[in-house]
């Protein structure tokens, strides 16, 4: 799997992502500076977590206008695979590559804790390492992860099976009003979605921080293992 990780000024989880990709795939990803105007030959581009441009103006709003984003749009239109995690998800919604938006957490505080996620559609390239309804743990760390979208978009996402991950209790129950299982208040407890063709995925939690038993578990590994399968085929 040839992966590239985009680094914006203020990106801070690129190292975590690089380690996860390297540990699982055995191959170190390329780091891509945000001012690049051409892309190397890649299977997967990752927009990692962090505070691109300090989250000033709006999370992801300025990164969405970085030179590399033109290339990434082209990459997407040509059927390339893109994963956006946390700030990367925010950038994907700011560029409208994925629908909806991420508002401030309902309690208006930064949240850093483990959450449980349920795989609602195991047929996407990003969820192929799991079975449908599998529940796994992942750390989350964000101030603006409260997913919203208009009714029509939500109907579309739900109807087309584009909800990849939902915040759930450890027993696998989703309840958008429950702050224990859905801590940021996301509509329909949505934690991650995919594009219509399934090749772009945005999610708030950090599976890349849970790929090593020493760090508390390997719950995040299937995401990367599933992607490996896609690119080996």
């Amino acid at each position: 799997m040839k992966a590239g990780i985009v680094v914006f000024p203020g990106t801070n989880r690129e190292r975590d992502m690089a380690i996860a990709l390297r540990v699982v795939s055995g191959r170190a990803p390329k780091m891509l500076w945000h001012r690049e105007t051409s892309l190397p030959d890649l299977d997967l581009i990752v927009l990692p977590g962090g505070f691109s441009y300090g989250d000033y103006l709006r999370c992801g709003a300025m990164a969405a206008h970085s030179p590399i984003m033109r290339e990434i749009r082209k990459f997407v239109s040509e059927g390339g695979y893109v994963l956006g995690v946390c700030n990367g998800f925010q950038i994907l919604t700011e560029t409208k590559i994925l629908p909806g938006a991420l508002l401030k957490n309902t309690e208006l505080r930064f949240l850093s804790q483990d959450c449980f996620l349920r795989v609602d559609n195991a047929e996407t390239p990003f969820t192929a390492g799991w079975q449908k309804n599998d529940v796994f743990r992942a750390p989350l760390a964000h101030g603006d992860g409260n997913y919203v979208a208009d009714e029509k978009t939500l109907e579309q996402l739900e109807g087309e099976g584009r909800i990849a991950f939902r915040y759930v209790s450890s027993a696998g129950i989703a309840c958008s009003e429950d702050r224990k299982s859905n801590p940021n208040g996301s509509v329909n407890a949505i934690a991650g979605i995919v594009s219509a063709d399934g090749r772009v995925c945005g999610m708030m939690p950090h599976p890349e921080d849970l790929v090593d038993p020493l760090m508390g578990g390997e719950d995040g590994r299937p995401l990367f293992e599933g992607l490996m399968e896609v690119f080996i085929r």
Binding site: R13, R15, D16, A20, R109, S112, D209, M215
Partner: peptide
């Protein structure tokens, strides 16, 4: 102190063995 430390990112860097 969970109310406090849940507002601090304790995992960024991917090297936090014991939070």
């Amino acid at each position: 102190r969970a109310w406090i430390w849940n507002q601090y990112d304790s995992t960024v860097g991917g090297q936090t063995v014991r939070r």
